[in-house]
Design a binder for these strands. Structure first.
Lengths: 393, 393
DNA sequence: GCATTAATTCAATCAAGTTGAATATTCAAG
DNA sequence: CTTGAATATTCAACTTGATTGAATTAATGC
């Protein structure tokens, strides 16, 4: 299951073909379950025999389960298969400057365990120690064997591999400048690790358990400390040449007369700053939730002011990426996001104005405090279903 | 060489593995020529034997040529291989409302033939007739056999498959609404056909013969009738869920006090409209070239006015796609593009401000009248070197 | 000259998908 | 109730194409 990363993987061979096909089959089971072998063969273009062999292997590895036979029309009723939720688990960890959020998720995308850990600082050793503890706690609490943990998805603020971009409110972690986070975590946690930014992780979370289960190309606008964009194209994460694609928060937009970075209008920090003007402190999602249910006028004013630049951003994303839909989510209360979506005035000049749309132009994604941590876990699950495509030579 | 498109191609098998590896090897020869088999094996991760077999096949098919041995250090000197320019040709055709531009290009990306054909109208039959004539003329003039023509790349204005977006200056072709252009051209020209928009075609042209030979992820801002964005990620064209990604012309930008679509500031139509205010008619690239060399004040004023919104657009593209670089090109004179690039004031808030950049943030691409037609041909050549990645299940 | 190094080829092996025949189970028609 | 068509599944033989290891060839370094 694990590829050798020491030399370039560009050419293909039988082994990699199998890996690819295995993940194709697993992906079909996930999205069409319960489903039979013959149907997967038809959908994938593989021969029934090939599918049959792979299915046998997946049952053997406890990734999927038999679920009776289904008779539809003539012929031998097809044996149906479904995902085995308990066939594998992934741990997601969101690292923030002063806290760590963790979530354990199974193959079905169901959350089995969550935790919040305070951090004294965000130095690598501190984080590694806390992560190691959470790993033991999560697997212990759920009675999971080491080999059932497919990997750990770590969500950390980017941008990665560059300097000089820490604008106002850009909360970077200290002590990580000269460290390769993947290698660092893999060696300390002895487990395969992926590292991503919050927006991308949240986007993938929607594929595993949320709105995007059957979507292939979509974008996710994520309310974090700043504002991020997760981009999924043909089921693959788009990271850009240096891993920093989707920095939509830096984009300049217009709000009334002011021209400013998008994230200074629409982000967790933007709300906090706005509310602070009126002496209201925002600590976490719950504070916002409460203010919203109290119909706070200042919060309402902020929503109005954020809607205009956000509408521009949506138009931008539509015209540049032409996604099936745009998902809006992040560490914000549901109702607040719904309200915000209701206030959007989407531009007419957009390729998204198709006559035969099956989805709204903007929908709300999963939200709340754990979104990013769940996304981290989702990255690992997603990897089991659809391999990363190899860079071409 | 040709895949069956009648059923889904998601699963892989030995045959497709070979196709993939063949194109990987061909791609390495193109970019590293002259190069030996052992080196390709090292670079690609394939065994020397596999590479050897594929190289033999490619020599057989006249795609590559032996080019002596090269001794570097000890050991048996490696036989070097280079692309055989005359091993294959591609025809590119740009269809505009009243004219058709055609270019024949060989595997090396060298232009062998160009033509301009006036069209009475842009109805499918008219275009097909003209295309068929050009195909005969081009192959005849260059003494090329039918089997040496790898395909035809047609460049047509998008957006495809949708209605209601024909804004001002959006010159769509008439009579193409209910037609699948690929199927139409393939049946009338009896040759494999790709259809793309001008920006994407121009982007790929840079990979074959221009600035992007060794780039994998980059964007191309194309001055056409409107303004388009061609997006290449990991050597693959990004088209979006419905084929309309990169409609950057529709994006709203700020210029002084006005907020307006980008293409109303920066596009061929924008220059034409601007100059028309002063009674100067712009017919083609040459007219612009002449005005520029005369230091026309109105043209200079337009350049100034276009630089600001274009700078914003560059920042946008950098932050959303994180490309290695952005190429600016299109149906404009070289000097004018160079001047425009010089006038850009690129935003500071961009992930492109890396300390260790090897390329400028914006460079000029191939330009001039034939850019799009050459791009069409490049699409076909590119396909021979790097197969399209298959959509995941 | 002789040992070392590197590229290439040959032959054998192996992994994985495909094909076609055989078998099982259901529905539908007579 | 029987028979035949349709569908799913399995078995075994086949095919493609990559990998592996030994043998061959031609350079370099001492």
């Amino acid at each position: 299951m694990k590829l050798d990363r020491s030399r370039p993987i560009i050419g293909s061979n039988a082994e990699r073909t199998r890996l690819h096909n295995r993940q194709v089959v697993l992906g079909f089971v996930r999205r069409h379950q319960p489903v039979g072998r013959a149907e997967i063969a038809r959908l994938s273009g593989l021969s029934t025999q090939a599918v049959s062999n792979i299915i046998a292997e997946l049952v053997d590895d406890a990734f999927i389960l038999e679920a009776g036979r289904q008779t539809k029309g003539r012929g031998l009723p097809a044996v149906q298969y479904i995902l085995n939720g308990n066939g594998g688990y992934a741990l997601g960890i969101e690292v923030r400057p002063n806290a760590m959020f963790s979530a354990l998720v199974n193959l079905n995308g169901e959350t089995c365990f969550t935790a919040r850990t305070e951090l004294a600082d965000s130095m690598p050793e501190t984080v590694a120690m806390a992560a190691s503890d959470v790993m033991l706690e999560a697997t212990g609490a759920s009675g999971i064997g080491r080999n059932q943990l497919l990997g750990i998805g770590v969500v950390m603020p980017g941008p990665f591999g560059q300097i000089g971009l820490s604008g106002p409110g850009q909360s970077e972690l200290e002590g990580w400048d000269d460290i390769d986070p993947v290698a660092f975590f893999e060696s300390t946690l002895r487990c395969s690790v992926l590292v991503e930014n919050d927006a991308t992780a949240a986007a993938i979370a929607e594929r595993i358990s949320g709105e995007a289960k059957s979507l292939k190309s979509y974008c996710y606008i994520y309310f974090g400390a700043g504002l991020g964009l997760g981009i999924v194209v043909d089921g693959q994460v788009m990271r850009g040449a240096f891993g920093n694609a989707g920095e939509i928060g830096h984009v300049l937009v217009q709000s009334g007369a002011r021209q400013c970075r998008l994230e200074s209008f629409a982000s967790r920090i933007a709300v906090r700053n706005h509310m602070a003007q009126f002496g209201i402190a925002i600590g976490n999602v719950d504070d916002l939730s409460q203010l919203y249910s109290q119909n706070n006028v200042h919060l309402s004013a902020w929503l109005s002011s954020a809607a205009e630049p956000l509408s521009q951003a949506v138009g931008l994303v539509e015209n540049l990426f032409d996604p099936e839909t745009i998902i809006l989510g992040g560490a914000m209360p549901n109702q607040l996001l719904d309200d915000l979506i209701g206030r959007l005035i989407l531009p007419d000049a957009s390729v998204a104005r198709r006559p035969n749309r099956s989805l709204p132009r903007v929908i709300r994604g999963a939200s709340g405090r754990m979104t990013a941590a769940l996304g981290g876990a989702a990255l690992i699950i997603h990897d089991a279903f659809s391999p990363r495509i190899v860079a071409r030579g």
